[in-house]
């Protein structure tokens, strides 16, 4: 095959290839968005845990820590 003929074939493949890649991945964008529309987000169970942490710390400890923090802040003034 003549080199220039081959070059024009290559240019054709380049154009066709890029159009196909974009078209196909563009289609996937639509597909993913469609899936996302019909898949509601899972309910989150996370916030309940944070309360537990507070409960486990006894009031005495909280008092002791806040007293210490208070004292520390005062000492820095």
């Amino acid at each position: 095959m003549d080199v220039f003929e081959a070059l024009s074939t290559a240019a054709n493949i380049m154009l066709l290839g890029m159009v196909c890649v974009f078209a196909f991945l563009g289609l996937l964008v639509i597909v993913i968005n469609t899936i996302a529309k019909y898949c509601p987000e899972e309910a989150k169970a996370a916030p309940a845990k944070q309360n537990n942490v507070n409960d486990q710390v006894s009031p005495d400890v909280v008092a002791a820590i806040s007293a210490a923090v208070h004292k520390y802040r005062k000492s820095r003034d």
């Binding site: 890029m18 974009f22 991945l25 996937l28 968005n33």
Partner: peptide, 14 residues
């Protein structure tokens, strides 16, 4: 999946 338009970046790098 969280940001599907990133697919276009994957496409253009080809």
């Amino acid at each position: 999946i969280a940001n599907p338009k990133m697919l276009f970046l994957g496409a253009s790098a080809q």
